[in-house]
Write a protein that binds this DNA or RNA. Sequence first.
DNA 1: CTGCCACTACTGGTCCAACCAGTCAACCAG
DNA 2: CTGGTTGACTGGTTGGACCAGTAGTGGCAG
Lengths: 234, 234
Amino acid sequence: MALAPVAAAPLSEQVYRRLLDAILADEFVEGVLPSERDLAAAFEVNRHAVREALKRLQQSRLVDVSQGGSTRVLDYRTEGRLDLLADLLVRAGRVDWKVARSALEMRASIGADAAALCAVRAPKSHRALRKVADEMASHPDDLAALDADNVVFWTAIVEGSGNLLYRLSLNTLLDGLKILAGSLGADIVYQLAREEYLQITELREVAAAIGAGDAERARKTAYEHLSRTVTAAG
Amino acid sequence: MALAPVAAAPLSEQVYRRLLDAILADEFVEGVLPSERDLAAAFEVNRHAVREALKRLQQSRLVDVSQGGSTRVLDYRTEGRLDLLADLLVRAGRVDWKVARSALEMRASIGADAAALCAVRAPKSHRALRKVADEMASHPDDLAALDADNVVFWTAIVEGSGNLLYRLSLNTLLDGLKILAGSLGADIVYQLAREEYLQITELREVAAAIGAGDAERARKTAYEHLSRTVTAAG
DNA sequence: CTGCCACTACTGGTCCAACCAGTCAACCAG
DNA sequence: CTGGTTGACTGGTTGGACCAGTAGTGGCAG
């Protein structure tokens, strides 16, 4: 059996989770949260635990706290930041496939541009990319290994693009993937991606285009490869 | 005179800022932070204020806190999320132009894909887009108004793309723009974008492609338009 | 001498009970 | 109606205490 760690999450973490769920489910009338003291009483924890949770919600731009006044819920569509992905992707144990599709679209867009930039700025990374692709071809049935190698492949491209924001976006997207795996089970996620992982010829083409310094070909082949899963999931 | 609000940041906010700067400047030996009690003593604030700041740093994946053990700095390149943009863009009063360039590249990539998706999913938004473009053409010298209208234009496209993550990314990028304006002064930022704002013909082409439901033309025209400022800033 | 274990001195996590500092609405004097 | 006062809220901050987990250290049993 897979021994999952027994949560034992800090209280402020649990409070954060509960408030987050309530906010995303729009459970607060008029978007006004109860006072810190009331929340502390309701959750039966100390006020400091509530405050630490609220600080995080504030950081995520989900609430607006003001001294003297009341704490209000903000519209995450207009105020939220990309980091909400992990929280929006799986809510109440259910996967929001619309959000998942958004993530795949974004992955394709950024992945393609990163490949183009990589071709210009780090064509030499082509050797390492090719090696990973060969590695993947050697164990076409080990989905877990394919998944790991695939991450290595795209991480190398993003690194080669020299674009720090693409690197950070990749972190966010991979985080979402991890959340998804935790919710659906890693096996299911691997199966969903199987079709893509097996197109190793396409990965080789991307690597070749990068090695040739051909930005537009790298962009095109990368986009086509990454779009496959979008249309499959749509 | 421009009446700027007198900041009266909460202590935990100030502590957060100080720690953030120290972390990004790699000022902690071995990447180990002092204990909460020591930090509280050093900053001359209560330990709770330090804890609230640390919770936020934890949320940003900048530190790893563990009970009993010590608090360690994480590598933001591999752990950080996109929301770090605002903090990385301006550090110690200096603009990091490499990060700014990254943001412009990402804007172009996502803006182009959003335009393509918008053409497919919301071609009718073309009327509203056209109207904003006309509005911009009517006051080509009012840079502040051009800037505001430009935000409206692209926000409409992102909304039309139906991609929630693009919406959240837009929020993050606009946040970065605001930080930049706060650091350099709004006038300077407007001047930098002036060249782009004046290409209203291009905006009309994007709107027309969306109205025609021509995804590829929308992508191409949008990308070319948004890339102008990248190459100018590079 | 070696290996294990208990002790100790830290670390972060939680709580309580205040008090300070803003906000807002009700009220009252002009 | 206008303006200021008041009081009951709100969040912000403090100090001090204790719980809980970690890791280094010393000494004891083998």
